[in-house]
Design a binder for these strands. Structure first.
Length: 280
DNA sequence: AATATTACCAACCGCCAGGGA
DNA sequence: ATCCCTGGCGGTTGGTAATAT
């Protein structure tokens, strides 16, 4: 006997989410909170599997999701954590506020695997000829200026960021010490990369991290997130019910109210943990 | 300019663990 | 103790944009 599916898939929408579905899901969760995923689609009037709703919310719609490319610092952290934790994406993501396990998994599978392979190849060649040092080539950090509020179009398709636009008022880029080739090689073998003179790095990282969260998730004015249930339900061919989404429900929709007070990246603590002898 | 290939990422799938009945 | 439900996780797939030929 096979396992019963999480929900009946008949008549359900599949594939990319539409902007309207996103609005409905967002509004519903804002009003009723997360959880009860199985019942959520029916109650929200969505023709989606509950699992799909959960995934969409966690990976895309959550207001504390950090959009934009992975920074070099995050990348280094991912690499180090992956070394320690393996493919425990949720654990890794838990140490990178605003990043989802899916995003990190994708990033690893598409980008870092190649770098890791290149590194190991480099390491092997280094062992054969120790004088040859191949530094890790890090791609230039790009800044995706398309915040969730920057556009009303909710992109659900894969988008590649190839053009970099840096706003004049943007904070100066992180002045991280670029690790020397030797340091990288050492880090390749042990989690001791961050030991030593990285106090300033961590300070900068912390500052940078706080910038991630000090912005206000632009509380949508009611009209922008207003969901026309009637129209949507008619489109779906389901009975119209009178769900009213009150505008005030969006008033406190910002990261300050959603994130915990200490949600800023405690990279220092993370690094200390990684470097501590107690870490397995 | 057209076509083929590659890169990327959102979404899906199946399995598993924890908790409640 | 057992069963069932729910939520969560990691692997994989499919679609599309970008790039190469």
């Amino acid at each position: 006997m096979g396992r019963s599916p999480c929900c009946s898939k008949e008549g359900l929408n599949r594939g990319a989410w539409t902007a309207l579905e996103d609005k409905i899901l967002t509004a519903y969760i804002k009003a009723h909170g997360e959880g009860k995923w199985r019942n959520l689609p029916k109650r929200a009037g969505l023709k989606r599997c509950g699992k799909s709703c959960r995934l969409r919310w966690l990976n895309y719609l959550r207001p504390d999701i950090k959009r934009g490319n992975i920074s070099n610092d995050e990348e280094e952290l991912i690499i180090r954590l992956h070394k320690l934790l393996g493919n425990r994406w949720s654990l890794i993501a838990g140490r990178l506020p605003g990043r989802t396990d899916n995003e990190i998994k994708n990033y690893w599978n598409t980008t870092l695997v190649k770098k890791a392979n290149a590194q190991s190849a480099s390491l092997q060649s280094k062992i054969k000829s120790p004088t040859k040092c191949r530094p890790i080539t890090t791609e230039p950090t790009t800044v995706d200026q398309s915040s969730p509020t920057a556009s009303r179009v909710i992109r659900t398709k894969a988008t590649r960021c190839t053009k970099v636009m840096i706003a004049l008022e943007s904070p100066p880029p992180l002045e991280l010490q670029v690790p020397t080739t030797n340091q990288l090689q050492v880090s390749d073998l042990s989690p001791a990369f961050c030991s030593g003179d990285d106090g300033q790095e961590l300070h900068n990282l912390e500052q940078d991290a706080s910038q991630f969260f000090n912005f206000n998730f632009q509380a949508s004015n009611g009209s922008e997130l207003q969901v026309d249930y009637d129209e949507y339900n008619q489109d779906l061919g389901i009975p119209v019910h009178s769900t009213t989404l009150e505008e005030p429900m969006f008033k406190e929709w910002n990261t300050d109210s959603i994130l915990e007070g200490n949600a800023t990246l405690d990279l220092e603590a993370i690094t200390s943990l990684l470097d501590s002898a107690e870490w397995p």
